[in-house]
Design a protein around this nucleic acid. Structure first.
Lengths: 215, 215, 215, 215
DNA sequence: AATGAATGAGGTTTCATTCAT
DNA sequence: AATGAATGAAACCTCATTCAT
């Protein structure tokens, strides 16, 4: 049950019978964009890395920006929503699970996902900085789809006094912030991270303290 | 004692009696870099935005990269040193300050700085994503200059049982993560943030729970 | 006895059992060349307009220039030869035909041809402007093949005092100029022209006055 | 009192203090467009012919199409209207002149103009074939400005029985057609033309016959 | 100091044409 | 015969940088 985006990506491409060279273009682009950034990557770089003539880069994608879009699109249209759906299923089905177990579950899930896809995540986050529209889009997706369900779960745990009585948004904020504190260094330095188990245990330990109910 | 970078700019410029037009170049560059990123901003864009001839852009700064450097320089020169000064003051003079007061002090200081300079921060973070050398440089700066002092302060609070007995790096990580959870949304959406007081109080409340010593 | 080039195309294609798709290539090319000019029309444009794969464009014609040639060929092969045939018929068989009747005959013939094939004519003239070699070629064709015969006919009518005693070239010039004065507006604006009968009558009336013998 | 457009063009450019190299770009472009056509002329060709770096071509004009526009614009905006105004002044002031003298006057005027500017005229006419909007624009200019005045003059000559009683449009058509019959060969072959005097005399002779009043 | 024209290397993109299927 | 992917040369254009004024 891989969530490795590059693998999913290749499967997705093979399924849509895109020529192998075009796949190579996209794969090479993803790697280079992650390494050097979108602007610093020339189409000649891409052609060379993909072992392809320069004109081939433009057979399927009419502009360099469309290559980026083709890489980002499965992200925003499939990977992200799918991940969210899977995640939400877990959330809604296992309401009986104690909060600490539940927290570990989602931490493991998301941290694994991000560690596996740090290359894609790097491109994605890097672009997010210059594309307010993309941020907007993701935000709406989250607010309409995930927010209500998550808020519901949080309310349940608050009723059963397993979770501090703060607004759902604030609780989510700290969970995300804590995950980022482990992920960002990896994205920025490309150093291999700690073992996922350690990360999950550490962050869960911290969050359970910080989010424990008062008294 | 403002740390607003545009104010710092002006001081810096007046000190080095840099002509007004050059000031305009820096201000325009900052805005454009934050909007579109460094690579996507052309020197002609800068000249136009600064209401200056194209050649003028190159009078003070010999390359486009030097403009970026001039923008980021106060950032790198103030973000760590000032944080360290706070620590040093506490460590050397006011060792009796309780941890919660100390935590609020640094949180307020850093959050204020970041909110005031969110444009520069955006450029800074955006560049960090594609300049491993810059990350390296910041990391060394941190490890050699800040790390020892911070570790010392943390050890003190741990000895006086005001702080959980975790490695200094881990404690720093959560503080930074929590700050980021408030700052990143502002950088990505350019929406005005909450009042700084609220942010400081909320984040301090959370961190003090999460970082409270065991038993 | 149509001289409509699209009809000629079809005959030509059926004769050489050229596949339907190739026919589509030629038709599409003609339209696009007339609209945008030869150089501004890409082979991909042609393929798209002909509803054909890009490679198919090159099955019958080895280069893009050959497509143009195939389009212009019936034009160059019919515009002079047919005019000459009319002359020849008159000269050899019906030398008694009065000049005004003869003039109307050729005028009707050529004007009909041009109105029916205004698309091809547009391409033809447009190309003439940037292909001195083509002009040269047409000129030679005219001088060697048409000129002698025409001169002969003109001389006959001059001898019988039905035609002013000017050099053949000058007489031809005015006939062509008068025809152009009706054709060019159609080519440039694509507006539907007057009825051919009116054009023939008007231009004949004018030419017969201008070319009447002295006294 | 030159009407040589390239001279007027250069004067116009010098008046608008455009840098010399930019003038060179326009001059070279005009020559090359006339020689090879717009599409067949590369920006490198232009740079080489203007003795200028390739980037220089794009300093003043942002696209290749804008170069063409810059060449055509004085044509449609100044040269053409000015020529028309001068022409119309002559037409309206000298109403007492006999028709044959008047005809010679305008023939000489327009033929001289076209012979002098056959280079520009070639580019102009060549473009006319692919720009219905430009044709439309010229047409409106002519219809609104020239048509009424010319029609008036024609009516006067018709009243004094010096001119056949045809619609003004038809009479103009034949005059233009006859002029074209002398000009087009020059544009197409670039061969030096006959002496202007001869052309004027010949065409006037023909037109005076064709346009003589009935009886 | 300031201007803006000029440069030329290099980037993106187009396009006629070839080729494997 | 037909397809459409692939090619690579060359086109258009951008841009950081230099230079004459």
């Amino acid at each position: 049950m891989t969530e490795h985006i590059e693998t999913l990506f290749e499967q997705f491409l093979q399924a849509s019978d895109m020529p192998q060279k075009q796949q190579a273009v996209l794969t090479a682009s993803l790697t280079l964009f992650a390494e050097k950034g979108f602007e610093a990557t020339s189409t000649r770089d891409i052609a060379t890395a993909a072992n392809v003539a320069e004109g081939t880069v433009y057979r399927q994608f009419k502009t360099k920006a469309q290559i980026l879009q083709a890489i980002l699109q499965p992200f925003t249209e499939h990977v992200f929503p799918n991940a969210m759906n899977e995640f939400l299923q877990v959330v809604t089905q296992q309401q009986k699970m104690p909060f600490d177990q539940f927290l570990r579950l989602i931490l493991r899930d998301r941290i694994t996902f991000l560690f596996q896809n740090h290359n894609s995540a790097k491109v994605f986050l890097g672009e997010l900085f210059k594309r307010p529209d993309m941020v907007q889009q993701m935000q709406e997706l989250f607010v309409t789809r995930a927010q209500p369900i998550i808020a519901d779960v949080i309310a349940q745990y608050q009723r059963s006094r397993q979770l501090v009585d703060w607004p759902a948004e604030r609780i989510m904020r700290y969970i995300v912030g804590t995950v980022l504190s482990y992920i960002l260094p990896v994205l920025l330095t490309n150093h291999t991270a700690k073992a996922i188990d350690d990360v999950v245990n550490e962050s869960a330990e911290f969050l359970l303290r910080g989010l424990a109910p008062t008294n």
